[in-house]
């Protein structure tokens, strides 16, 4: 057991030896899970989603947020099943629409922390329009996009983030479509916090998710993961452990990337991990609430005549 990992989990060496069925009682962070209700998860064993869920739980715990003040909103897909396992206000919606539901919820409850959890297909194909508009408004929602480059739940069809040339059940001769760079899209659309890490770098994810949730405006965290069951098998990428290891080998920290020469940066094919954008932009519900305050005050001075102009 590596000490700093135990520390990040708030676990002692002794606690780490506790059999899994007793973890919930043994650990405060894990109290944020719905213990007896829906475990085990629907995810394949070896999936990166469990790691990402762990990072999210720790990030919320780290911020000291009350469970009642957090809402998790998800669409449809493997990733979107995440909220069912966590003890917050959880809204499992329709495919692609998590951010649209989350927008209504955030407007109704600006005081709550609203986190939208999506996969790459959910967020960027069917939900692409909501994604760019939520970023444009800079509404106070944290979008967690777990990118595994494939539609996993339906059995491995190519997604808007499948790299060119890679195979999928609907791209049997290799994908001919160029992928979306998720973070670039969010940055261009106006997100005030954008960061990327991978399912291998769990502690980095903790940190970025904490910062994202603490940010007032629209935040995007891309968690690069993998699907060994569909994408890995069809592309002969090995086991879950192989794919997890590949996340380590094929990514570099932003600090290292920044030190590369322009030519080297141009040639870089590795995943750049780090905080990619911080922008100080006004948050949507705060601006709208100012407008509401002005109008209600004006109405108090000038007695209301329904509909009279």
């Amino acid at each position: 057991m590596v000490d700093h990992i135990l520390e990040a989990h708030h676990l002692t060496k002794q606690e780490a030896q506790i059999p899994p069925e007793d973890w919930f009682e043994a650990n405060e962070t894990l109290q944020k899970l719905r213990k007896h209700k829906k475990f085990p998860t629907i995810w394949c064993s070896g999936c990166g989603l469990g790691v990402v869920m762990g990072a999210l739980i720790r990030a919320i715990d780290h911020l000291g947020l009350d469970n009642d003040q957090v809402a998790l909103v998800a669409g449809i897909g493997c990733t979107a099943r995440m909220p069912v396992y966590m003890d917050f206000n959880t809204l499992h919606t329709t495919h692609g629409r998590a951010l649209a539901f989350a927008t209504g919820l955030k407007i109704a409850r600006p005081d709550m922390k609203v986190i939208a959890i999506m996969g790459d297909g959910d967020a960027l194909a069917i939900g692409g329009n909501h994604f760019i508009h939520a970023a444009r408004r800079n509404i106070g929602i944290t979008a967690l996009v777990v990118n595994n480059s494939i539609y996993g739940m339906t059995g491995g069809q190519y997604s808007p983030t499948t790299p060119v040339g890679m195979r999928a059940t609907t791209a049997p001769y290799g994908n001919v479509e160029p992928p979306f760079p998720i973070c670039d899209l969010a940055m261009a659309a106006g997100a005030s916090y954008v960061a990327r890490s991978t399912a291998f770098h769990a502690l980095e994810l903790d940190k970025y998710l904490s910062e994202a949730i603490a940010n007032d405006g629209f935040s995007l965290v891309e968690a690069v993961s993998y699907c060994h069951t569909t994408y890995g098998r069809i592309n002969k990428l090995g086991t879950a452990a192989d794919m997890m290891r590949a996340l380590k080998d094929t990514s570099i920290p932003k600090a290292s990337y920044d030190k590369l020469s322009p030519e080297e940066q141009q040639a870089n094919t590795k995943i750049v991990r780090g905080v990619l954008q911080r922008k100080n932009r006004p948050e949507y519900t705060q601006i709208y609430n100012l407008l509401v305050e002005q109008q209600t005050q004006r109405e108090e001075i000038r007695p209301r005549n329904t509909g009279r102009r």
């Binding site: 809204l91 629409r97 649209a100 989350a102 209504g104 919820l105 508009h133």
Partner: peptide, 17 residues
Amino acid sequence: MEDEIASMAAIIGGRVG
């Protein structure tokens, strides 16, 4: 909202709130 799909989703979210 950006379209009617989002509008319908948003009012459900608003009521949940």
